[in-house]
Amino acid sequence: MAEHSRFLALLAVAVAAFALVPRLGGDYAIGVALNLLMWIALTQSWVVLSAMTGYVSLGHAVFFGAGAYAMVLCFGSLPFWLSVIVAGAATGLLALLVGYPCLRVRGPYFVILTFGLAELVKFVVINVEAALGQFGRLLFGGPGLAQIFYVVLVLAAVSVIVTWFVRRSRFGAGLRAIRENEEAAETLGIDVARYKVLAFALSAIVPGMVGAAMVLRTTYFEPLDLFNPITSFTIVSIAIIGGGDDVPGPVYGALFLVLMQELLWANWPEVYMILLGGLLVAFVLGVPDGIHGRVAAWRKARG
């Protein structure tokens, strides 16, 4: 219980600090903080499925993009906040529908399947838009940057809370048991099919809502951008750099990545991707348990 109250207090302080950014900082500061919160929200959601169960999704961009598309379809007819909720419901439902067949395969097959699924949905949306005679949609008259920021701040907080409580629940213990040994988990009475599909749906809702909010920032809907596989790759990279199957990993990873982006992008834009790729290789080879694993080991050593 003490652990929960300390976590919630820390979270409240962090949310309050972020809430001050639009009041104190300019558009640049808001942009950087928004970027950070977005990656935290996306990666926390990914952790619930992939870090806990070991079913690595390389297609989480599909939920980001589908949420953005839901926002586009609602745009003008529903209020902003309601559209965000609709987007979350839609991507959760999408995950429930595709989850059952997808989660029957394991290991590399699941990885490739999620990647393929994201590409499939992307091209379906492109073709639907073409059939509708739409080639990139402009979204004028949406909410301002500060309003988008507050929505993504709430989503990041929600994703952190979800990861925290799932990680400490019976459900989370079941998900981690599936990762350790799925057959053993089944013999202990864990309904593995249901657990995996629920985790998949849970990991899809917040990314859909984040996509819905973020598409309004660019005021332009282009499927190739919103379903960009780089989004999926970045989520996995942040999770690897951050490490672990708990709340701190994605926070460390996103902080690290966003700082690097700002530093490298500003100073050496031409080698930014090369450096990022090099860092990822270094982490996988040298720090397989990520920043979180190193911090935990360091704390333990200090007693």
Partner: peptide, 26 residues
Amino acid sequence: LSLVPEGRLIFPGFSVEENLRAGAIA
């Protein structure tokens, strides 16, 4: 009914106590 599978299949990354707790997940 409870099966202790061939090859034990304990959860290697879980502590002994976490393994036992997982056994009472039903």
